[in-house]
Design a protein around this nucleic acid. Sequence first.
RNA 1: CGGGGCGUAGCGCAGCCUGGUUAGCGCGCAUGCCUUGGGCGCAUGAAGUCGGGAGUUCAAAUCUCCCCGCCCCGACCA
Length: 569
Amino acid sequence: MLFSKALIPTLKETPADAEVASHQLMLRAGMIRKLAAGIYSYLPLAQRVLQKLKIIIREEMNSIDGQEITLPAVQPSEIWEKSGRWNIYGKELLRFKDRNNRNFCLGPTHEEVITDLIRREVKSYRELPLTLYQIQTKFRDEIRPRFGIMRAREFVMKDAYSFDRDEAGAEESYHKMYQAYTNIFERCGLEFRAVEADTGSIGGSFSHEFMVLADSGEDVVVYCEGCGYAANLEKAEVKPPVGLLENESLKNLEKVHTPEQKTVDEVTNFLGITPDNLIKTLIFDTDKGPIAVLVRGDHEINEIKLKNLLGCEYLLLADDDTVEKVTGAPRGFAGPLDLNIPVYADNILKGATNMVTGGNGKDVHYKNVNEPRDFKTTRFADLRTAEEGDPCARCGKPLHMRRGIEVGHIFKLGTKYSKSLHATYLDQAGKESLIVMGCYGIGVGRTVAAAVEQHHDKDGIIFPKALTPYQVLMLPININDEILRKAAFQMYDKLSQAGIEVLFDDRDERPGIKFKDADLIGIPIRITIGSRNFERGKVEVKYRESGKMELIDSEKTVKYIKGFFNKKI
RNA sequence: CGGGGCGUAGCGCAGCCUGGUUAGCGCGCAUGCCUUGGGCGCAUGAAGUCGGGAGUUCAAAUCUCCCCGCCCCGACCA
């Protein structure tokens, strides 16, 4: 491709509304442009990168017998009503009516459509297992789109669905998919981790997220170097403490006056204690009525764990009125003593001695509260958010944390959708059974953004070999020098004929501009053709990643480039 | 949805508080000259419903009200 004919509108300055590196660089490199909040156009350079990723994805999907399909983006409300998600999905689901006043939505995901299709078309165990996938634009009316195409409203996603006769089959499909995902992200040259995840609103029994590690990631990856355990922060389990409690003598319960001391900071400062000597009591409203939850003062409650423990749909920190009704005190003075609602406590509080808690009265706290002497606990469980250094639930070694970008998510769905949408088959005995499903997503655009996020420097993008829009950027110093011009075009033809993807910067621009653009766009190899070197039959090769430069015989360019790209990753 | 901020040429911004020339600056763009190994120099030029509407005023980019769009923080989320 001739640069002079390409639509690659690079920007010298960083647009004001771009915050993270990938967003800034993709705008500056002329890859994307915004049309509306969270809605982007993909320009040629981005299109080529997306295309490369899609090819990798297709190869890996096909290799596990996935079959590509295309499902409708516009979906009727009926199937969503059947699955029950028309009401639950909320505002994220963009709804509208057609001319006949029928309800439709723009597909945020395709479980309903695919299950409906399979329900009609698959009747016998002989037709299972089956894995189908598509690469398609989805729409989710995100509350707050941000970070360019990392969290957009309209975005390209690869979604796959597996259909099996039974649980064992579904697990096999899941594991194949897990392997395919691992292959995909490895081939992309990304540093990532597969982590255990909560199943969220999609439902189902287990799930992994594929996280590209990057400091700017929105999610936190918790991992253990001892046993390889990895989970996202919502899910990461903390090992219950064993035998850690010192045999401190139990002191007498004492009521203290704590005027206007409500927060953990205030109370601990006022009483001259540290937060780990305090029990934080939080009142939650749930669909099963109000409950109290206890965690240590220096810990954070994990609402996902709590929700899963209780098995409830609705869970929200109670408002002031409820707190007052339940504890008899304003917010800030709740404690577990004499509460007549269920009390759930984090594992670490089991047998806790001489703690401070709220006194369930205005300006009152208790000192020397002891479990179980002074209050009853309905149940102990792992209810807090893991922290750096906490013991791993599997092996006890300290947990570590890094930030990550979720680029893939796989779920074993079970029969959630086949049940609600009646997707069944007849087994060998002629008995009707529910199809067991799995669903598997990859954020295609987000993966590209994550690649940029992970691979860039102050000068611009550094594309991994597998995703680069072009393999080589040719940069003649002076296109008006007839000899150079001719030689450069000859080399361009030669490389192109050898099957190398070349972006040839034939623009009549000053070298500085071309060098800056070359660094910004981030093609792995730059071939610079200058008159002094060329007179000696040499061209300069510069590697974008390492910054290394070397002079090579211009005759050997093709071989050289091929050698570079044949090396793994 | 709550809190904060922004909207002036393609991009980045000044001007607004304290209303009053022809609305500026840098980059980009066009043309010419010059230059050619890291966003070069000189000259000329095109380009603006000052987000939209209503109002106050002799006079509004500037003051008031309403609306729209966008960004940040939070809640939320495969």
